[in-house]
C-alpha cells in the first residue's frame, strides 16, 4: 500500500503572511487568504461533505466531557459544527451549530430532525475502529433535537455579544491560513460567550497537533506546520452522490461504504490510489473509477501555540491538554474585576 503524502503549504502561506504584513494591504491580504481557504478548505468540504460526514460519528472524549458538564438549559455554540455530531451530545442544552459549508449544515439539519441515528449501520461498522481508540459511541439520539443550525463564517459570526454560556470549536481553527485569522477566530468565539464566574463563558478549542509521534502520518516536533493533506474520493459515483446530498437528500448506503475507510482519528487511511496532485477542489472530467484527490489546508499546532493564540485573542486559558494527535484548550474572557479582587 502506498500512501498519498501530504505536501507543504509553506510557500503559499508565506505569501499570504507577507501580503498581510505589507502596509496598507490588509483588505487585499484578507481577500487572498479567504480565496486560498475557499480552494483548500471550503470548496473541499462542500464536495466531500457526505463522505466526510460518514466518517464523523464519535465525539472526542475531551469534547464530550466538556459538553456533558454544561448545566441544563445552557445555550452553547458549535462553530464549525460539520455534520452536527456534537449537537445532541447533551440533550439538556440548546446548541446552535454553525458551519461555513452549506452542504454539511444541510446534513446536520436532517440529522437533528430524525428520531433515531440514521447511520446506525455505520455506527455498527465503525465499532471495529473503536478498538483503535476512537472514543465513545455517538449516542443520545431520541426524538427531534432542540438544537439548531445555520451557515456562517467563523470570522463573521452572527451571534450577539456575550449571549451564550459556552462555545466549542473543534477541528476548525487549524484550517485558517494565517495566524492573525486563527487568532481572530478565537476572538470571535470569546466575543459570543458570557463573562463571569466559571464555568460560565468557556470556549473549547480543539486543533490538530504537529506532535503526532504515535500516528503513522509521520509528523512530529520540528516539522513543517503548514500542510496540504489529501482527501481521496474513490470514484465519481461518490462525487455524484455528494452533489445529490448537497441538495439536502441523504443516502445511508454511501455512508455505510465510506465508514469502512474511517480510521482512529476519523481521517481517511493511507489510500491505495495512485499518488498525484489531482484537482484541488475541482470536479468534472474524471473517469468512472478515477479517484478524486482534494487537498485540504491544515496548520498543525505545535505545543503551546494554541495557548499563545488564546492570549493574543484577549482570552485566558482555563485548562488545556493533548488528546490523540490534537491539542485542546478551554479558554474564557478575563474575569470581571470583582472576581479577581477576591
Amino acid at each position: 500500500m502506498t500512501s498519498l503524502p501530504s505536501s507543504s503549504a509553506a510557500p503559499a502561506v508565506a505569501k499570504l503572511a507577507a501580503a498581510a504584513a505589507a502596509p496598507g494591504h490588509d483588505a487585499q491580504a484578507e481577500v487572498e487568504a479567504e480565496a486560498y481557504e475557499r480552494t483548500h478548505v471550503h470548496g473541499v468540504y462542500e464536495a466531500i461533505a457526505p463522505h466526510f460526514s460518514a466518517t464523523r460519528h464519535k465525539p472526542w472524549p475531551a469534547v464530550a466531557s466538556f459538553l456533558q458538564a454544561q448545566h441544563p438549559g445552557s445555550v452553547g455554540l458549535d462553530v464549525g459544527c460539520g455534520n452536527g455530531k456534537y449537537l445532541r451530545e447533551n440533550p439538556a442544552v440548546f446548541m446552535l451549530g454553525s458551519d461555513r459549508s452549506a452542504a454539511l449544515v444541510a446534513l446536520a439539519r436532517s440529522r437533528l430532525g430524525r428520531s433515531e441515528e440514521p447511520d446506525a449501520a455505520v455506527a455498527a461498522t465503525t465499532t471495529t475502529n473503536a478498538a483503535a481508540g476512537s472514543g465513545v459511541e455517538f449516542s443520545h439520539e431520541s426524538g427531534a433535537a432542540i438544537s439548531d443550525v445555520l451557515v456562517a463564517d467563523g470570522l463573521s459570526l452572527p451571534f450577539r455579544d456575550r449571549a451564550v454560556d459556552f462555545a466549542i470549536c473543534v477541528a476548525v481553527v487549524h484550517h485558517l491560513s494565517t495566524r492573525a485569522r486563527r487568532q481572530e477566530a478565537i476572538r470571535q468565539l470569546l466575543r459570543c460567550v458570557k463573562t463571569g464566574e466559571a464555568p460560565s463563558g468557556q470556549v473549547l478549542v480543539y486543533v490538530w497537533a504537529l506532535e503526532q509521534g504515535n500516528s503513522r502520518r509521520g509528523w512530529d516536533e520540528g516539522g513543517e506546520q503548514d500542510l496540504l493533506v489529501p482527501w481521496v474520493l474513490k470514484s465519481t459515483s461518490q462525487t455524484q452522490q455528494s452533489r445529490t446530498l448537497r441538495r439536502g437528500l441523504d443516502n445511508p448506503t454511501t455512508a455505510k461504504q465510506d465508514a469502512v475507510v474511517a480510521n482512529k482519528s476519523g481521517e481517511p487511511p493511507a489510500p491505495t490510489m495512485p499518488a498525484g496532485d489531482g484537482p484541488a477542489a475541482g470536479t468534472g472530467g474524471v473517469g468512472h473509477t478515477d479517484p478524486v484527490v482534494f487537498q485540504r489546508y491544515y496548520h498543525l499546532y505545535r505545543k503551546g501555540e494554541l495557548e499563545e493564540d488564546v492570549l493574543a485573542a484577549g482570552g485566558v486559558v482555563i485548562t488545556s491538554g493533548y488528546e490523540r494527535d490534537n491539542w485542546w484548550t478551554v479558554a474564557a474572557n478575563e474575569a470581571p474585576p470583582s472576581q479577581s479582587e477576591k
Binding site: S98, A106, R109, V151, A152, D153, L155
Partner: peptide, 14 residues
Amino acid sequence: REGIANFLLPSHLV
C-alpha cells in the same frame, strides 16, 4: 432556505 439561514457575506461586507 429549507429552514437554514445563511450568514455568509458578500466580500465587500466582510
